[in-house]
Design a protein around this nucleic acid. Structure first.
Length: 273
DNA sequence: AGACAAGCCTGTCCGC
DNA sequence: TGCGGACAGGCTTGTC
């Protein structure tokens, strides 16, 4: 699934279906996804706890319990569904929690790269510590961003994928936000001009918010907990459009590889200077 | 057959 | 010597 708009869509979908319910059982089918914890220990830890709420930080889903937190990271292909007991969950079910109203929370994940962890102390959830700003909530100044980019030799696009700057940006929205800001993805982070930083500060939340309004992006698999697919792929300006004309200047969109990930940008109006 | 895919952790090397 | 940064590789399974 996974960038911020898709994760937020998932959280909004499951929150009303889970809040207030108690966990009556849990099963984990791929021990690797819990490491260093184990299925038996986590299942026991969850048993009987009440779900107080569901929230998101970056791409991380936090199911808050009385006396602990279940962390879920969907990575590439994970998804969450709330279904009646006995419903067909299709292939790739990797975990499930039974709830006291006759429904189950199902975690599906074909590639099994997703992560599940139980934390008894919600103040020491280690993966949260490295996360940077929340793009839709934190107001950041150009000066703050300039400080964070200073001395960074990495190109700006792979840096946007570093969750310690802004949390929640993934490979699609990094390219899209840079196009909106007219910034060359190959440009060294430390060499962004003040106007470029100003534009990026606006484009990052703008793109993510627009995607959220579309229910996220569905390239192939993503569906929210109600089975609805996202539609932001129809709004793509650069992602997957290599060879097609730029909507702004008409020049062809290029596809390159940076840090082993595809980057899409306009060869005309996103020009390194 | 081989490349590629919404993500991110780990090991290694490098420079300060 | 230590530390952060940059990068390759790995994890995994499915599709084109």
């Amino acid at each position: 699934v996974p960038e911020l708009p898709e994760v937020e869509t998932v959280v909004r979908g499951i929150r009303p279906k889970l809040t207030g319910l108690s966990i009556t059982g849990a099963r984990f089918l791929v021990p690797r996804q819990l490491q260093p914890q184990t299925p038996r220990v986590v299942a026991k830890a969850l048993m009987g706890r009440r779900i107080r709420g569901v929230r998101r930080r970056g791409k991380i889903i936090l199911i808050e319990l009385n006396g602990g937190t279940l962390l879920v990271h969907l990575r590439m292909t994970g998804s969450l569904h709330v279904r009646p007991i006995g419903a067909d969950n299709g292939d790739y079910e990797r975990a499930r929690m039974t709830l006291d109203n006759g429904t189950i929370l199902v975690f599906r994940d074909p590639r099994t790269l997703g992560i599940l962890r139980f934390y008894s102390d919600s103040d020491t959830i280690e993966p949260l510590r490295r996360l940077g700003w929340e793009p839709l909530e934190d107001e950041v100044s150009a000066e703050q961003v300039r400080e964070r980019l200073a001395r960074r030799k990495l190109a700006i696009k792979p840096l946007l994928l570093d969750q310690s700057l802004w949390a929640g940006i993934g490979n699609i929205y990094a390219s899209e936000a840079l196009w909106v800001a007219s910034v060359d993805p190959r440009k060294k982070a430390s060499s962004l001009t003040r106007p470029e930083i100003e534009r990026l500060i606006k484009s990052v939340p703008r793109v993510l918010r627009a995607a959220l309004h579309c229910g996220g992006t569905t390239l192939r698999d993503f569906a929210d907990p109600n089975g609805r697919r996202g539609s932001y792929q129809r709004e793509f300006r650069v992602y997957g459009r290599q060879g097609e004309p730029c909507f702004r200047c008409g020049r062809p969109i290029r596809k390159i590889v940076q840090a082993q990930r595809s980057t899409y940008f306009c060869s005309g109006c996103q020009r390194r200077r």
